[in-house]
């Protein structure tokens, strides 16, 4: 871990302003950032501790949804009665992720900003375009079982590790931010995470210093909600594939996938196939998938996980 200077921010605006310092990073739960700082994958020169900013409430949004403060802890978001009742997929996704200890620390905004678990990203002796742009991708041709099957590039085949973000993608959540100049904006989660392309080190739509203040959920989508996470061990593991689904009585619905791409993967245009079953739906959702020999199983797994969800929705 490189040395850094440290400050506690007292307001979002102050935080955003402080973020203009070179090498500044926000720290909230710290469960991902500190992990990476210990390995010098992240080397911030200045840490802005935003834990004192409040932003830890879940409020009814004027349009009928919920506005989740950026610093609401994963445990509290999962346990919120409104979330459990109206946004079950989100509660389920949170509870499927990490562990009680991590969920007690991890925040809503931080969860969205989690970085990949690609093992080559995590080993600084190997080339990684995400860690060191232009250095190459060691994962391609290497150990790829957990890596992306769709939307990857010649520069990067990493996946996004979040469960929560997958549910938020299915729920059409919107990320609210404030920029260093004080202006605010709203970014749909769909546009928040990026595909790797030639710049896998740029992972989100956030600008330098831009600070997440909240995530807003639209009014409840209704239907039956599922988060099916498939992993090797029964808990405390990242998804091989996960399926966030909202299924209506008539068989229509929405599906987002985790574990398959550089971002939560959802293809709205494919969702029309849902009433026809998991096979056609997943074929459309994962059309153009280019898996490796080691992770080709994810395509079939995604289909079967969706089939499990649809069977449960019917039952």
């Amino acid at each position: 871990m490189r040395p850094f200077t440290y400050e506690r921010a007292r307001s979002p605006a102050e935080a955003a302003a402080a973020a203009q310092r070179p090498g500044a990073r926000f720290i909230a739960g710290g469960t991902n950032l500190l992990d990476l700082m210990k390995l010098q994958i992240e080397t911030p020169a200045h840490l802005i501790d935003v834990n004192g900013l409040g932003l830890d409430r879940i409020e009814a949004a004027p349009e009928g949804g919920l506005r989740i403060g950026a610093l609401v802890r994963n445990t509290d978001l999962a346990a919120d009665e409104r979330v459990r009742r109206d946004y079950g997929v989100l509660s389920r996704a949170l509870l499927a992720g990490a562990t009680g200890q991590l969920r007690n620390k991890a925040t809503t905004a931080g969860n969205l900003l989690q970085r990949t678990r690609c093992p080559y990203f995590y080993d600084t002796n190997t080339a990684c375009n995400k860690r060191q742009p232009g250095s190459g991708c060691s994962a391609i041709g290497g150990s790829t079982r957990g890596l992306a099957v769709i939307g990857a590039s010649e520069a990067c085949i990493a996946t996004h590790p979040s469960d929560m973000a997958v549910a938020m993608r299915a729920l059409d959540a919107v990320v609210e931010t404030v920029r260093p100049d004080g202006t605010e904006r709203a970014i749909p989660v769909a546009a928040f995470h990026r595909l790797p392309g030639d710049t896998p080190h740029i992972e989100t739509a956030l600008e330098a210093g831009e600070f997440i203040t909240a995530v807003t959920l639209p009014p409840p989508a209704g239907g039956r909600q599922f988060y099916r996470k498939v992993r090797d061990r029964a808990s405390y593991a990242f998804a091989l594939v996960s399926v966030a689904a909202v299924v209506q009585r008539d068989g229509t619905g929405r599906v987002a996938l985790g574990g398959v791409a550089h971002k939560p993967w959802r293809v709205e245009a494919a969702e029309g196939e849902l009433p026809r079953g998991a096979g056609p739906a997943m074929a459309a959702i994962l059309e153009g998938a280019r898996p490796t020999h080691e992770n080709a199983f994810k395509v079939k797994l995604a289909e079967r996980a969706l089939a499990a969800v649809l069977a449960e929705a019917k039952g």
């Binding site: 678990r117 093992p119 080559y120 995590y122 080993d123 190997t126 060691s138 041709g141 290497g142 150990s143 079982r145 957990g146 090797d232 061990r233 029964a234 808990s235 405390y236 593991a237 990242f238």
Partner: peptide
Amino acid sequence: LSVDKRLGFFVNHDLASYEVPVHAD
């Protein structure tokens, strides 16, 4: 232990990626 047969090392060299059983298993 997942072997990178080009670079010659065990790739999953931590407890997040080398999965030993947890309580739930």
